[in-house]
Design a binder for these strands. Structure first.
Lengths: 307, 307
DNA sequence: CCGAGGATGTAGGGTCGCTACATGATTGAC
DNA sequence: GTCAATCATGTAGCGACCCTACATCCTCGG
């Protein structure tokens, strides 16, 4: 395979007519250019230049190869330009993993915005709990992870994974309307309730049994909406994060604030190796906007129609 | 400018999926491939590969650059192929310098044949005496020289110039029909003739004054046909090479053989540096055929209509 | 839990390419 | 005609680079 440096030397000589000028253009001595040409001739087994007075002249073969050298160099330039453009462009495929509530409350808007602003970006979404999400991210199966991180069962971020906090999601106790509880309570007072919780293995369930040792939930359902239905039926109580709470609570349930409020951090994480990728940054921005928007919507609901 | 070896490494990894296999394909160790990739990443400031389990996986940017690498390598291959084809093809421009008689007697047929057999070759012809021709060849103004080389004023071939003999061209004395000379003579007997010769500086003139010291030609004309006309007018005698003799001698002149016959070597010369060029070889072959044809034509004329 | 398989660091040696200088060749000017 | 300027090209030496060998780390499968 012909060496690129030699082609550059030949092309420079073809352009500047003299080894001296070519050397200046290539920022080296004429001797270096001459040696490159000699090696190119040896390697190709072709005479490329001929003496012409005190200068030199390209042979037919030399001109031919110089033309091709120009094409090669142009192709290399295209490659560099494409790479540089890629560096500044939101392109390619971006797969996001997110916990269930985020999939419903944050991702639709964020992914829609990404698609609208960056038509060259194709996106994908996978629902998974934070542990699975972090694993998938670490293994490179996904490019971005949206995780809920309960302080009491804090996630461990492997080295090479960067993460930032979108914000805190507070959780409240939801009880049947007729339940005998004040407007505010503490976790310690809740030991004897009948509990509705997520499925075993889910981080919300882990969290519950961690903060209320000894509690054995009787109902295990994955979706918070289903939990609310069960609560409305008077079967028990549950702790439901506000992000997961539907805009309109079903009738028959009541919100009880817990003090101190249980809360989870919502974070977005990516591989540090991919941190510079514009698609990653754009997605993080979109998620943050989506978060702010969801927070604002909750705030306005609280003002207009206090829970 | 991106290094070609690094692009080859990236492309091999893209093709073979693993650094190990890429190393085998490139006939080097996986460590070398890995280092090339690392350097390519450093030089481009882009992440090109990511870990994937115990193997690795190309990033978007890596795939992009690998595609361009394929194009670059294809372009380089084209250059090599074009050069290889050029090595075996009669193409380009071939300029020939020849002495006057050769321009008339050899070159038309030879150049016509070259053009017919090699449409991609464009030719040129310059008339010049052997000294000028050798100079032009040496300086690279022409690619091929057809020279007449009189042993008595032998040419000096500079180093780097190769030459082969086409054949010997014998010269005869041409005298007016009524001239008092036998059918054969010697140079020594011709000291007192009135001489018709080429212009001063021409090699034929140089040759004449060299072999007949003291002779001072009275007539100096460049073309042998004109010399024949002068001879027919009874103004003097001349020595005319057979190659220059027209098929039909004008009336009023007679051929006298000289013993030993004066003769000149007709040679074709080229720069050794260009010896491998197919166009040179083809032209030399064409000239030799042209020479043989001219010799055969003279021979048949001699048989059918003895001079 | 351990072994196989794969990537990637580190040290060392060999090659390659460049620089500086000298040489050869050619041109143009005085 | 001679001399100086210009240009290409050899040679020696030095530095950079690249590759190999070996060790290490990580991951996957039993």
């Amino acid at each position: 395979m012909i060496d690129l440096g030699r082609l550059r030397a030949l092309h420079a000589v073809a352009s500047y007519k003299t080894v001296l000028a070519a050397g200046e253009a290539l920022h080296c001595t004429p001797s270096a250019v001459s040696q490159q040409l000699a090696k190119l001739e040896r390697e190709t087994g072709t005479t490329l230049v001929e003496k012409d007075g005190r200068g030199l002249r390209l042979t037919e073969a030399g001109r031919l190869l110089a033309q091709h050298a120009e094409r090669v160099m142009a192709t290399v330039d295209e490659a560099e330009a494409a790479l540089a453009a890629h560096r500044d462009t939101v392109v390619g495929r971006l797969t996001v993993v997110a916990f269930a509530t985020a999939c419903r409350a944050l991702l639709p808007w964020a992914l829609h915005k990404l698609a609208a602003e960056h038509p060259q970006l194709s996106t994908g979404l996978i629902e998974a709990n934070p542990h699975e999400g972090l694993e998938a991210l670490h293994r490179g199966h996904v490019d971005l992870a949206v995780l809920d991180d309960w302080p009491e069962v804090a996630l461990r971020y492997p080295p090479g994974i960067a993460h930032v906090e979108l914000g805190w999601d507070v959780a409240d106790l939801i009880v049947p309307s007729g339940h005998a509880t004040a407007g505010t309570t503490t976790l310690a007072q809740l030991g004897s309730e009948r509990w509705i919780s997520a499925k075993a293995g889910d981080i919300c369930h882990e969290w519950l049994v961690r903060v209320l040792p000894g509690v054995q939930p009787d109902f295990h359902v994955g979706e918070f909406e289903t939990q609310l239905t069960l609560i409305a039926a008077g079967l028990g109580v549950a702790i439901i994060p506000r992000l997961a709470r539907p805009p309109q609570l079903p009738t028959g349930v009541r919100i009880v604030a817990i003090n101190p409020a249980p809360r989870r951090r919502v974070v977005v994480a990516w591989r540090e190796a991919a941190a510079a990728r514009p698609a990653i940054k754009a997605a993080e921005r979109a998620l943050r906007e989506s978060w702010d928007q969801a927070s604002a919507a909750r705030a306005s609901r609280t003002v207009n129609a206090p829970a």
